[in-house]
């Protein structure tokens, strides 16, 4: 393989074949013959199906890279829907001149992450575009998961009731602040890594051991603030959050203070909010805490009948205010 990706790698001929064989299929465990579609056996009447594009800048960041993100993000979208992630399709748009060794590193971490999460990358596509037509590398992953019928309600939120407890699996905002610090070359010493992680094993353990989960969603762009506002709107109920209970790491607080951001509205890539029946919340919390991705889990709030559709924050200083849906962008290309 040449050192840099060139337009001929996207031409459909020998070099394309070399790129696919040399970088992707071996790592992803794909077997010949390469067909136009992966043929899958799905042992269930219900599947969960999702897709997401990744355009993050920088593509390598503390705690991960665009490839790891592309697997974790899609795995998490399936897992929070109550599904068991099974298969992933990956499409790559590569800018001419991109380093082959970087592409190999990215493909390897995708393979590692997929193996750890127990999913297979079964099909994909590669396009190379002229210099300047995309920024280095964009990846789209599409995922399929098996959904048992008893979990079909989870993504709809239709079992969410007043009194349900909200549980988060750890600190808010680490991904966004890590990317911000890496991007801006801020002269701050930010001892942080992205929380980028697949959550399907933790979620599986929760679902296998407790039937009190009423809703789940991963907290990506817009962070906790966006998801709680979506949930309030979906259910027509109010949500009250205790600011003191939401874990936020010191470097995240510090950078947010300086730049005027709200840590609760910052993006994450390994965080989920679980809405649990009141009587089951402590048990679910303990299950989550027993998993590495959930060791800092915390109950942060409650679903209420008050102020339907709105999220109220009891601030750590004793005041009360709305936690509103964030608007605009704090930082583009964060995932």
């Amino acid at each position: 393989m040449s050192e840099k990706i060139s337009l001929s790698h996207g031409g459909g001929g020998r070099q394309t074949h070399d790129l696919i064989q040399g970088v992707f299929t071996k790592r992803f465990g794909m077997k010949d013959p390469m067909t136009d579609s992966a043929i899958l056996t799905v042992p269930s009447a219900m599947i969960a199906f999702t897709t997401d594009s990744y355009v993050i800048d920088p593509i390598f960041f503390p705690g991960g890279n665009i490839g790891k993100l592309a697997i974790c993000g899609t795995v998490n979208d399936l897992a929070v829907s109550g599904a068991d992630p099974k298969y992933i399709a990956a499409a790559f748009i590569i800018e001419e001149g991109f380093g082959t060794s970087d592409l190999e590193k990215i493909a390897s971490s995708m393979a590692d992450e997929a193996e750890a999460a127990g999913v297979k990358i079964v099909t994909g596509d590669t396009k190379v575009v002229e210099k300047g037509q995309c920024d280095r590398l964009f990846i789209t992953t599409t995922g399929v998961g098996i959904l048992r019928e008893e979990y079909a309600h989870i993504s709809s939120a239709n079992r969410v009731r007043s009194g349900d407890r909200l549980i988060i699996n750890g600190s808010s905002g680490n991904h966004a602040v890590t990317i911000l610090a890496a991007r801006r070359n801020l002269t701050f010493d930010v001892p942080l890594i992205s929380d980028c992680a697949a959550l399907n094993h933790m979620i599986r353990k929760v679902l296998d051991n407790n039937d009190g989960v009423h809703f789940m969603r991963d907290l990506t762009r817009g962070g906790l603030a966006a998801v709680l506002n979506e949930l309030a709107a979906m259910t027509g109920r109010g949500i009250t959050v205790e600011e003191d209970s939401v874990p936020v790491d010191e470097p995240v607080r510090g950078l947010c203070e300086i730049l005027g951001f709200d840590p609760l509205a910052m993006a994450n890539e390994g965080k989920v909010i679980v809405v649990a029946a009141p009587g089951e919340a402590d048990k679910i919390l303990n299950i989550m805490r027993s998993c590495p991705e959930g060791k800092d889990s915390s109950i942060i709030g409650i679903v209420t009948e008050e102020r339907p559709g709105r999220v109220v924050l009891n601030s750590s200083t004793g005041g009360t205010r709305f936690l509103d849906m964030p608007s605009g962008i704090q930082l583009p290309r964060i995932c």
């Binding site: 005027g260 709200d262 924050l313 601030s315 200083t317 004793g318 005041g319 009360t320 205010r321």
Partner: peptide, 12 residues
């Protein structure tokens, strides 16, 4: 203005 509302000062 931002701090007053963010900390919920009017509610106090």
């Amino acid at each position: 203005t931002a701090a007053i509302h963010r900390f919920g000062i009017p509610s106090l």
